[in-house]
Amino acid sequence: MDADRQTVRPPGSSIVLRPSSIGTPVNMQVDEELIRAVLAGETGRYAELVSRYQAAAWQLAYGFVGNWEDARDISQNAFVKAYRHLDRFRGRARFFTWFYRIILNECKDFCKGRDRRRVVQDPPERHEQDAVIFEVADPGQGPREAAASAELGTRLTEAIRELPQREREAFLLHHVQGLKLEEVAQVMGRRTGTVKAHIFKATRALQRLLEPYWQEERRYA
């Protein structure tokens, strides 16, 4: 995803900084300064790190679990965990790649637990299945275009959920979160070539699943 896309428009909200634009050299330097300050005892400055990455963290978790509240809890846990282990962050990688890895692990743990709970007792909750993870509303769209866009958003959400875990991770991090292939490889702990293969397979799967709806949306676009 292009680095110039710096904002998202959550429902009923004002502009929020786009997290994928944070991984620039200047911002990396800011991250390092903040981490040094926190480790030196200025705990309050961790709030600045949280503010910088909370949108990215929440979005990434939401892309995985498809539930707004769960995504918030997961990303908050990830921030607390990152704080606990901040002294282990050696600065060899960017802070956000290290932090994204923590979020992904939290997401995986959550999904495992949820799957177990479902097997034992609960059927999937309907609202989770229907949740669209993309902002589909657009004031400039007519009603037909908006409906087609919403439909495509729903199908894309479902298609992403059906992807195997690694393909989903790679696709979300690269095409949705805007990380470079090398950064995705760092987050996932895989080789860049492996990440490319995951993204390629994910794209083909999405194409197969979405093409009929895509044609429909294109008709109204």
Partner: peptide
């Protein structure tokens, strides 16, 4: 086309108010 669509329709994110409450909870 997918990338273009994603550019127009990004992932849902928290509002500023939600973000502030989020940071407060973490701290």
């Amino acid at each position: 086309r997918l990338k273009r669509w994603l550019k127009k329709h990004p992932l849902l994110g928290p509002s500023q108010e939600q973000g502030a409450a989020f940071t407060e909870d973490v701290m």
